[in-house]
């Protein structure tokens, strides 16, 4: 056993000796409270709390002028400058909006499906049938919006009548999808399910956002 204990002691001493220069090259022996954490990063563990208390106490006793940072210590972050509004920012905003819309749609359909399964107690067969109904609806909606995008690209903005035609087709798709979704459930299950869980709009594929975005950019170009 002495050999193993001596080996263990060697490892610990090695780490202790190595810790002095190693702090700048090995992430392993770096303390996460020190160099790794951003200046505004709160310390959540017990040691961090003690360290913060001591630092705060030290700061209270220090003159106002800040000391220069130690070598290897993070420089104090410069105050944030508000971004100047411009074209790049607008693009970023649109990307963020699109991303947020997709996340929201995905969250809506995932949560609605989970709530429906939980409330109505759907079995495996019913879940498959329900998923097929929503998938069919989304396929038709995506085809329809895809046609609309192509139409706008080739012929410009649709006429009032064409717009109403597209809207009517979209409504038809939704109504027939709701019928198919309702047909999967029996009367008791329909009574148990929340109304939002049987709303076809809760199951719209986030991919449709891309088509809407294309339409928006086409409209902006014109």
């Amino acid at each position: 056993m002495r050999v193993v204990v001596t080996l263990a002691l060697g490892i610990v001493i090695g780490v202790a000796i190595g810790a002095v220069p190693a702090e700048n090259w090995s992430s392993t022996v770096k303390s996460h409270e020190g160099d790794q954490a951003p200046p505004d990063c709160p310390r959540n563990d017990f040691s961090g709390v003690v360290g913060n208390m001591l630092e705060d106490a030290g700061r209270r006793n220090e003159p106002a002028a800040a000391l220069p940072p130690e070598p290897g210590e993070p420089a104090v972050a410069a105050p944030e400058v508000p971004p100047v509004p411009g074209e790049t920012d607008a693009k970023v905003d649109i990307e963020q909006e699109v991303s947020a819309a997709k996340i929201a749609l995905e969250a809506r359909r995932t949560q609605s499906r989970a709530a429906l399964i939980e409330d109505a107690g759907l079995d495996e067969k019913q879940i498959v049938a329900f998923d097929e109904a929503t998938a069919a609806m989304n396929a038709e909606l995506l085809a329809l919006t895809g046609d609309l995008v192509t139409d706008v690209q080739e012929n410009g903005p649709p006429s009032r009548r064409d717009s109403m035609q597209y809207a009517a087709e979209a409504l038809d798709v939704m109504i027939s999808a709701e019928d198919r979704m309702n047909a999967v459930l029996d009367d008791d299950q329909r009574a148990d399910a929340a109304a939002e869980s049987l709303d076809p709009l809760s199951y719209v594929d986030p991919a449709i956002v891309d088509h809407i975005r294309e339409l928006r950019s086409l409209a902006e170009k014109r």
Partner: peptide
């Protein structure tokens, strides 16, 4: 844990050379 917090604090006070081995272990 308290000792570790004190060592981290000492390092910020310029005693890094002395406390780093202890922080490392």
């Amino acid at each position: 844990f308290i000792g570790h917090g004190i060592l981290i604090w000492l390092r910020t006070k310029g005693y890094g050379l002395y406390v780093s081995p202890l922080i490392g272990v």
